[in-house]
Nucleic acid binder design. Structure first.
Length: 289
DNA sequence: CACTTGACCTGTCCGC
DNA sequence: TGCGGACAGGTCAAGT
């Protein structure tokens, strides 16, 4: 899924597309994907206007004028795709190949707005979810309580970054950096990319990593995420932005899904291994145990 | 507590 | 062409 840069890309897109619009309908055939009752939807969602679109870690928050919010996690294969009235009804719209097919068999939630535009939550694997909750209760959710700091926060320092890892000293760095309670938003792609950037082997124990290496990792996590946001995220398989378009970060990836190809830094053949239960890509020359 | 593994789902790809 | 198994961007609930 969508890691921080992909969710941020969706957030930015939706901010431009749905703020101020009034929700006319919201339906789902998949209770697991959208557990709220019809009565809740009617009372707190229908006729409400979108007031803001926010993000915390990999969670997207759509605030409504009812003081409720849609809390959305895309997990592995979730998409939020907006379709405007012209794309729905007009012929030859530039977007039509991607958005005219909606809804499709992976559509889990369908919403419509007062300008005849629509928003679809699609999710092939059904791991993701949309939940309608009072805005004030979001901070009390268990995930929100324990999630770590935003790595792109201007006030987040390298020292704070390093100190977040002390609790996880006895595990490997890949497992630790994927742990959302350590730092928010890093997933499998950006874990591999940033560890390559900092020349740290993903199996290195956290306790063995030096301050200088943490400084590099801090810099690379931020650099990789900023670049990916600039490129509209990574479309490894399913990911698309709010307009149904793919991101291009994978064209700039150094190791992720590049096994068998040369390391851009030294030319050594990139290898794939398994670390923390996840497919993991390294340069065996740049990243040593 | 910290750490590891399996479960949740659907779809695709790869080897036989 | 079919079938079985591994694997896929994430998190949780169980185990130890």
């Amino acid at each position: 899924m969508p890691e921080l840069p992909e969710v941020e890309t969706v957030r930015r897109g939706l901010s431009e597309l749905i703020i101020g619009k009034q929700i006319l309908s919201a339906t789902s055939d998949t209770p697991k994907s959208f557990p709220n009752t019809v009565a809740d939807v009617r009372q707190f969602m229908i006729d409400a206007k979108v007031t803001a679109v926010r993000r915390r870690a990999k969670v997207l928050l759509i605030d409504l004028s009812s003081d409720y919010s849609l809390v959305i996690h895309l997990k592995m294969t979730g998409q939020l795709v907006y379709v405007d009235a012209q794309a729905r009804f007009g012929a030859g719209h530039p977007n039509d190949s991607l958005v005219n097919a909606l809804p499709d068999k992976s559509t889990r939630v369908t919403m419509s707005f007062n300008d005849e535009s629509m928003l679809f939550f699609n999710d092939q694997r059904k791991f993701g979810w949309v939940k309608l909750l009072p805005t004030a209760e979001i901070v009390n959710l268990p995930f929100m309580q324990k999630v770590g700091p935003e790595p792109l926060d201007l006030h987040f320092t390298a020292k704070q970054f390093r100190e977040r890892f002390t609790r996880r000293a006895r595990t490997n760095i890949k497992a630790a950096i994927l742990d959302q309670s350590v730092v928010a938003g890093v997933g499998n792609i950006y874990a591999d990319e940033s560890l390559w950037g900092a020349k740290i082997h993903p199996k290195r124990l956290v306790g063995s990593i030096t301050d200088a290496e943490f400084e590099l990792l801090y810099t690379d996590v931020r650099a990789v995420m900023n670049l990916s946001i600039e490129k509209g995220g990574s479309s490894n398989r399913n990911y698309v932005n709010a307009e149904g378009k793919r991101g291009s970060y994978m064209d700039f990836a150094n190791v992720f899904r590049r096994e068998g190809l040369p390391c851009p830094r030294c030319g050594t053949t990139i290898e794939k291994l398994r670390v923390a239960g996840r497919g993991t890509h390294i340069c065996p020359f740049c990243q040593v145990l």
